[in-house]
């Protein structure tokens, strides 16, 4: 069974003034995310990708269609806590997710709400902080941490609830390159070492490339769904919706147009350099 399943989901935000109906933020969207996957959802601002995060754990409820979390329909209120415990969400601004004045107390917030035994909370908090590499900072005040460190604390706060799936809604958008790299590494560890399903929402293609599967959103709909290589092979399509493709893909695309037979799915520097090397030596 899929861990998260969107079935023909349509959602629109309530119109605030004058009752003018807003266009749907998500339109007839279907997607199935399997256990253990690392999925990136790629799309520009306003493509509807952030709404997906809130639909996936019942923070928002669909207007049409349904969302199933491990088989539970998100409209069922009695499953609410169970759904939120199964699918944890990390948001963009780390400052606005940290509740407590001490790192470890913040990480404990979720498990405390679930009514877990103090000794078990302690174990989970320590292990979550170690997973994201913030254990040494457990006694610090969050306001003295960098953006990347705060975001890792926020991630620890979610994994301490031991969810089976974690959705990250543009977690690196406000970070500098170092913070971005550290957060990215922590996320990869969650998926690889703990087997947690990761849904990573972003507009940075260099981060999406790290996933096993990329789902591209455009105009509130699903546009593409495939492996990074499959998705970026169609560089023209990606660019046409205002997204970047890796420079390596752009370069090979230009050269291919001139009849140089490079592959069309070279995502990493290594792959491109080797392909060029092979072509030149082959001659």
């Amino acid at each position: 069974m899929a861990i998260i399943k969107f079935e023909n989901v349509t959602f629109r935000y309530e119109s605030d003034e004058e009752g003018v109906a807003l266009a749907p933020a998500v339109k007839d969207f279907s997607l199935s995310i399997e256990k253990g996957e690392f999925v990136a959802i790629l799309g520009h601002n306003g493509s509807g990708k952030s709404t997906l995060a809130k639909l996936a754990n019942g923070l928002l409820l669909p207007e049409k269609g349904r969302v199933l979390v491990d088989g539970m329909d998100t409209v069922n209120e009695e499953d609410d806590i169970k759904i939120k415990q199964t699918v944890g969400v990390v948001f963009q601004n780390p400052d606005n997710q940290i509740v407590a004045t001490i790192v470890e107390e913040d990480v404990a917030f979720g498990p405390e709400n679930l009514g877990i035994e103090p000794t078990e909370i302690r174990r989970r908090v320590d292990s979550a902080l170690k997973t994201v590499g913030m254990y040494e900072y457990r006694k610090h005040g969050p306001h003295k941490l960098s953006g990347g460190q705060k975001q890792r604390v926020a991630i620890a706060g979610i994994i301490a609830m031991e969810p089976r799936c974690i959705i990250l809604d543009e977690p690196t958008a406000m970070l500098d390159p170092i913070g971005r790299r550290d957060v990215m590494n922590a996320i990869k560890r969650l998926n690889r070492d703990l087997g947690i399903t990761v849904v990573f929402i972003t507009h940075y293609m260099e981060e999406a490339v790290e996933a096993d599967r990329i789902v591209v959103m455009d105009d509130s709909r699903l546009l593409m769904d495939g492996t990074p290589k499959e998705v970026f092979a169609d560089a023209t399509k990606i660019r046409s919706i205002g997204l970047d493709v890796p420079q390596t893909c752009q370069l090979s695309e230009l050269l291919r147009a001139d009849g140089i037979k490079l592959k069309n799915d070279l995502l990493s520097i290594d792959e491109l350099v080797e392909n060029i090397d092979a072509l030149l030596k082959g001659k």
Binding site: Q247, I269, V273
Partner: peptide
Amino acid sequence: IGLSVPQITEVFIRLRKKGY
């Protein structure tokens, strides 16, 4: 010092290392 060079620059640095 925690800064990166563009991906494309890196490609050419590698090619040069390979002797091109």
